[in-house]
Write a protein that binds this DNA or RNA. Structure first.
Length: 571
RNA sequence: GGACCCGUAGCCUAGUUUGGAUAAGGCGACAGCCUCCUAAGCUGUAGAUCCGGGGUUCAAAUCCCCGCGGGCCCGCCA
């Protein structure tokens, strides 16, 4: 069962009123009551009043009269309050609906959705911005899969271009060390910084980098062999970072392998007059569509990022026959994607309603935007390390006698959950102002708080000495009847909303909705087991409470899983 | 100069898509709670001109217009 179905049952009943049969009724008109003593679900009568040209208060009263005469499943009583129709749900029925199983609705038309995410430039280690990208990409695929879609996770490695050429230049002509003396992607990142430091003194190096790019496209042996080395260093380093973050990919594309096809497509477009020549370069004139023109091939003949992106779009649809293509890329690229999508449409590769740019906000530092080229970044590996150090000291304080292996496992899971939740809890479209202290906190609205809630439930279950199967068998809900079980009902009601929260997160591509929900839910659980004892109570009461908690733990586990966050059985 | 996004307690955020009852949570502050299933927790107090001004509406944090403040883009970078 879930809350949408309960709303549906009520709506069906309302439709039974004879003047209402022709009305359009929507379960969207339900809302939460401002306080539980007003009921559990409120139904607004404004829309019906509008359709019937009547006073909403009269409508409410009329529905109340009609519904009060017969018993509706899950409903205890109905009360009209002003323009609202407040439903008090039956606690036992609601609790039973929760314990006996939440129903997750799956998409009726499953789609094949490609999610391109991460897509780093292979000239530096990943920073917090990449982390946000990686986490969003993973979480969104999990959520879309959960809704019954098929997702294909793709990483486009930008292993070509000026940034990469700068590193090649530094490697060949500026650096003394030729082999990594540290994590290899960081070694390459240092080369990038070295180049950018040097170019301030000798601006002509910009030209040198362009020349490297030209030589690269001409297959110059010296350039190509260093390029290969550098690229392998970076990819080797990324492997570790991706593993820590739990990133998976079904397919990797390399810009270096695609750009030529991109050039061909652009040249064809030029022949067909879709594109134009201007100052020796090939451009897409987009003014007609309210967009600035876009250079597609430079006047020196070399490709640009977009050259390759056009070919990649074609490949994506050909290779996988996808219904939609989602690009997880920072919001600073919004204009770029408008241009790209228009070009893809003009070339008849795909219509733009199949393309979606998930533009997530920037992570800003106190001093402003992160800039790899200047080195003012929060690097992904170091923040994970720092979190692990902190988590370890917390674990050691609490459980000094754990085995090293067990400590390590807990430490890693706690650290990663703190980082992931800190980033995912914010609406993706919003910028995040990175606060070092808050990012490393394990208290309050954090991943570890949710893990803790889960672990405590598991601990209570363990100490009860019962196994999960026996707990769920033959629960006697009557034992809840002794008191009004307000807390249990509140938990069950919120739990029944879980499926629609996932659905909203999937529709809006916002894992943050799930985060907020889990916090609210965990809060109820925490105060519940704080107030009500489980073990030592009457056997039936204990069983019923255990069943409620066990079902709750499944919600937390599933919710965290959708966010890519692991749970701990003990913490 | 043009485009897009944002502005909610000292700080971080939810709520804005689809207007609807008393604007919600965390951090920080203050006051409590471990002889009681894990205190990474719980309970309470203080703290809001929902950036400002107009408009639409029975009803605006939410929609529209103007202004102010911030971010970001408008490179033959990616």
């Amino acid at each position: 069962m879930n809350i949408e179905r309960i709303k549906g049952i009520i709506i069906e009943q309302i439709k039974g009123i004879h003047d209402f049969s022709k009305l359009e009724l929507s379960s969207d008109w339900f809302q939460k009551t401002p306080s539980p003593d007003l009921g559990d679900l409120a139904f607004q009568c404004f829309p019906i009043a509008k359709q019937m040209q009547k006073n909403p208060q009269e409508i409410a009263k009329k529905i109340e009269n009609y519904l009060s005469s017969n018993k509706i499943d899950y409903v205890e009583k109905v009360k009209a309050v002003g323009p609202y129709l407040n439903f008090f749900l039956n606690a036992n029925e609601v609790i039973e609906a929760f314990i006996s199983g939440i129903t997750y609705e799956q998409s009726k038309e499953p789609k094949k959705i490609m999610i391109e995410y991460s897509s780093p430039n292979t000239n530096k280690p990943q920073h917090l911005g990449h982390v946000r990208n990686n986490l969003l990409g993973m979480s969104i695929s999990q959520i879309l899969e959960h809704q019954g879609n098929k997702t294909i996770k793709v990483n486009l490695l930008n292993d070509r271009g000026l940034g990469v050429s700068k590193v090649i230049y530094a490697y060949l002509y500026l650096a003394k060390e030729k082999e990594p003396n540290k994590k290899p992607d960081h070694f390459v990142g240092d080369l990038y910084l070295l180049f950018n430091k040097e170019v301030k003194k000798r601006p002509e190096l910009e030209q040198e980098a362009q020349r490297i790019l030209k030589r690269w496209e001409e297959n110059d042996e010296e350039v190509i062999s260093s390029w290969k080395k550098i690229r392998d260093f970076v990819i080797e380093g990324y492997k570790e970072t991706y593993k820590k973050l739990g990133c998976l990919f079904d397919k990797e594309y390399f810009e270096s392998e695609i750009y030529k096809e991109g050039k061909e497509i652009v040249m064809e477009g030029l022949k067909k007059d879709i594109f134009k020549e201007k100052d020796g370069a090939v451009i897409a004139p987009l003014e007609k569509y309210g967009l600035p023109e876009k250079v597609l091939i430079k006047s020196n003949g070399t490709a640009l990022y977009i050259t390759q992106d056009i070919a990649l779009a074609k490949k994506k649809f050909e290779d996988f026959e996808i219904d939609y293509s989602i690009y997880v890329v920072a919001s600073e690229q919004e204009l770029y994607f408008k241009q790209l999508f228009k070009i893809i449409e003009l070339l008849n590769i795909a219509s733009s309603d199949k393309l979606y740019h998930l533009a997530y906000g920037m992570i800003l530092l106190e001093g402003g935007k992160m800039k790899s080229r200047e080195g003012n970044i929060v690097d992904a590996d170091s923040i994970i390390e720092e979190l692990e150090r902190l988590a370890l000291s917390e674990v050691e304080q609490r459980y000094p006698n754990l085995s090293e292996e067990e400590k390590k496992e807990r430490t890693e899971k706690i650290a990663i959950s703190a980082l992931k939740f800190y980033i995912l809890k914010v609406d993706p479209t919003r910028d995040i102002l990175f606060k070092p202290k808050e990012s490393i906190s394990f208290q309050g609205e954090t991943g570890p708080y949710l893990q803790y809630t889960y672990a405590r439930i598991k601990s209570i279950v363990r100490k009860s000495g019962m196994n999960s199967k026996d707990i769920i068998k033959n629960i006697d809900l009557k034992c809840f009847e002794n008191d009004e079980c307000i807390e249990e009902k509140a938990i069950a009601l919120l739990a029944l909303e879980f499926p629609s929260i996932i659905e909203k997160a999937a529709e809006s591509l916002k894992p943050s909705l799930l985060c907020r929900y889990l916090l609210d839910f965990a809060q109820l659980i925490n105060s519940y087991y704080h107030d009500k004892r489980v073990i030592g109570e009457d056997k039936e009461v204990m069983k019923a409470r255990l069943a409620l908690l066990l079902a709750s733990s499944e919600i937390i586990k599933k919710g965290l899983w959708l966010l890519g966050i692991p749970v701990l059985e003990e913490m």
